[in-house]
Every structure is written in C-alpha cells, then in structure tokens.
Design a protein around this nucleic acid. Structure first.
Lengths: 233, 233
DNA sequence: CCGGAATAAAAAGTCAGACTTATATGTCAC
DNA sequence: GTGACATATAAGTCTGACTTTTTATTCCGG
C-alpha cells in the first residue's frame, strides 16, 4: 500500500514505526540514535532523518544528553495516515478499528448532508454508479467487487461534501471497510438492508434532500457500529 | 505556542512550512535541497531533515534527479496540528476556520453523546465547573476568561467521550475558539443562549442523558456554523 | 551533614566533503 | 519516428570531526 520504503530512512521507519505503535517500546523508553543506526546498519544521517519523521508524528521526542524518548500514546498524531496504517497492522487493530468506526459515525452523516447540497452532477452520477455496483455484487460471494464499489461510494460522499477535512478521511474509511471485509466480520454476503440504504443515499443526494441523505447515512454508520458491538443510541 | 524551533531544522520549518501552506510555492514547484540549504544558511544535513518532515506531512515529495516537488493541497495532511497551525497563521485562515468548524459540527455532538455514557464523576464535575466559569464570565467583556472555560469545556467533552480520535481534536477546537475570540466575530459578550446551552449539556452528561447531550451540543455547533455564515440544515 | 557551585561526561546537534545511485533528458543510429 | 545508449543532475548515503546542551557527579564551604 502507498509507498513502502522509498529510501533507507523509509526502510528503517517501516520497522521502527510499527514497533513503537505496537507498544514494543513503552512510553518513556529511551533509545539512542547511534545504537539504532548500528542496529539497522545505516549511517547516523539516515537514522536522524528517520527520528525526525517519528518526531513530527509525535511518536518520540529527541532531547540532548537524554536520547530519543518514546512518547505516551495520547501524544501521537493518530490522524497521520502512516500512523493509522501502522496501528492497523499491529495487535491494536481491533481497538483502532472501533475508534475509526466511531469517527465515521460522526463524520459521514454530516458529509452526506453537505454532499446533497454541493455535489456536482458528475458526482451524483458516480454515486449512483457505485451504488448500482454494490447491488450488482451483493450476492454470490463477490466480496472484493462489492468492497471496491463500497469504498468508492464513501469516497465520493466525503469528497462531494466540499469540506477538505472530510475529504481527507477517504483513506481512513477505505482502511476500515477493507479491514472489515478481509479480517473481521462479513464472511458471507453483505446485509441487503445496508445495500438498499446506499442506493437510497445516492437518490437523496441526487434529489438534493440533505436531511434525508444525512438520516440514511446515519443508519448505515449505526449498522457499522453494531457490527463491532459498539452500543448505539 | 507549542515548541517553536527546537533545533536548526525547526527554524527552517517555521519559515518553509508557512510559506508552502500559504501557497507561496504553487503545487508542482520544484525546490532544490542545496539551494534551500544556502538560502537558510544551514548544512545540507539539516536541510534534509527539514525536507523529510515536510515529506511526512505530504507537503512535498522528494525525487532523485528532480528535486523537492510541492504537492497539491489535496495531498496535505490537513489533520497534522503543525499544518493546521501554519494554515491558521496564513491568509487561508478564514477558509481553514470554516473547514474546522464544520468538522466540529460533525464530531462534537457525537462526542457529547458518548461522554454522557462514559464520563467519570470527576469529568462531570469538571464539566459543571467549566460551564459555571463560562456563566460567571459571560458579561462585562471578560472574553479571555470566558474563552478559557469554553476551551476547557469542549476539551473535557472530547476527552470524556472515550474515543482517542475525538480526544485528539481538543487542540483543534481550542484553535477555532481562540480564533473566533481574537480575530473574527465576537466583539461583545457571548450569546447568552449559547452559555445556557453549555450549562444544559453539562447537566445532560451528568444525568447520563446521551440523546439530550447530543442534541444540545448540535445546537451549539450549529450556532458556530451560523456565526461563520455557513448554511445549516 | 547538607547545599550549591564547579566540573565532567554523554548524547544530540551541526557541519563539510567525498562518494553513490537513480533517472530525466538528449543523442544517435536505424 | 523509435529504441538503445550516453550524460548530466540532484538526491541519497557515509564518514569523521567538532559544538552545544543538559544531566550527573564531585568537591568545597557552611
């Protein structure tokens, strides 16, 4: 996914990042740049660049005479796509998936409401196309094809909202949906009710009915919450 | 605010980051590490570290034989607190403030609902204390004191939700509220209706009434949207 | 015995220079 | 025009020496 290790410092991060986010080094652990450089068999310069990146993610803090200190989880930039990917790859995956699904439940309904106001004709068409693609692949264990259209659908909604903060969550939603299909629940065909809801959302957006689009999307995300046993109102 | 320029590379970022996010270098612009190092009068090692950080924020992309290319705005990690700060400091401030306020309107009501379910007794007490602080400073141009309690109130809500993704938005909300008080609207005392709503939210959370907490918070955020002339449903 | 100042040590930070590697681009034969 | 080859360019990497900051220790006077 994305760009795995372009350059030596990237390789180092591919190992160190997951290790830190997995809690392998508890908060407060102190690492030394020189030692790390030796361990990964890279020069100090490369190691320093890697540490700088970790520092910009607030995963670690570098202080003179002390070393590179691992920061507590509450400091991490949990919205950084890289951090999200690292955490989703580790043992904290279930918890991470829950957090992100709750975030979805807050954002997507509002985004859908805005999409109903701002979506271009082209985006409306895309949305309908995605929904139809979901219908077409909702039976017969065509999970991958279904996922593809599902991800596209939610991406269009988030983008069409016209809000850049929402649009940037497209990747997050893609990860959550993919995670659900590949690892957790959904061993059989998707819930027909959910499929219908997607079609209805597409219709509501096309009809410029913001309130209806928001309400229907809220039903979708509440379904996602229930799948993960998160209590819904 | 935060940690301005810890180290040479930080100084460079303090200049280069705002310049890029302000659109001073249009997407596609190509910079060269050596040239930048000369311009900022630092060694290439330092410059490289700065570029690595910008790269991890997806503000630029570094490619061999080409240089450091500025990426289009849609690629930026707009959830990175540093990026948010840079953008809020530039000419895009109003647009950024709108984006963030819309995000608030999506997140905070859901967070309040969750807070009503998960808040500890101590957090309920804090919430009440903040609300009372807001009431006490809602008259007589005590804007700074009001802001202080307002920020604290929303921070507690987001933290008490128990969702780390929500909790991490505390800083964002603080920036938005501070921005509103210091630059944009609100030259006089805050809207009494808004103050009352905060008190009622605190009560609802204390009473474990999730639905009511969510609805009242939605009223608060819709007020914030209206202040910025963003159409509300 | 204690406290504060001088001192030492440790680790990050910085710099300069040489070298390597990937790659965009231009050239030439076909 | 197309494809193979050569070349120039800028990032990438490594090394080693030096500086700076901050912590810990030592030592002296009270």
């Amino acid at each position: 996914m994305s760009t795995p290790g372009r350059g030596l410092h990237g390789r180092v991060l591919d190992t160190l990042g997951p290790a830190i986010t997995a809690g392998e080094y508890p908060a407060g652990s102190v690492l030394r740049t020189d030692e790390l450089a030796q361990r990964f068999e890279v020069s100090r310069s490369v190691m320093r660049e890697a540490v700088r990146v970790l520092e910009s993610m607030h995963l670690v803090e570098s202080r003179r005479r002390v070393g590179v200190t691992v920061l507590p989880e509450c400091e991490w930039n949990v919205y950084d796509p890289q951090v999200i990917r690292w955490r989703l790859a580790g043992s904290e995956r279930p918890r991470q998936l829950r957090s992100l699904t709750v975030l979805r439940s807050a954002v997507e309904p509002v985004a859908a409401g805005l999409a109903a106001r701002h979506a271009t004709a082209e985006q409306c068409a895309e949305l309908t196309e995605c929904a139809l693609g979901m219908v077409a692949n909702s039976r017969g264990h065509r999970l991958e094809e279904y996922l593809f259209h599902d991800v596209a659908f939610h991406r269009v909604i988030l983008t069409a909202s016209g809000n850049e903060m929402f649009a940037r969550l497209g990747g997050v939603v893609a990860e959550v949906l993919a995670g659900r299909t590949h690892h957790d629940v959904m061993f059989e065909d998707p819930d027909p009710a959910a499929v219908t809801l997607h079609v209805q959302v597409a219709e509501a957006v096309r009809a410029r009915d913001a309130e209806r689009a928001e309400r229907l999307t809220r039903e979708i995300t509440e379904g996602a919450l229930q799948e993960l046993d998160i209590l819904a109102p």
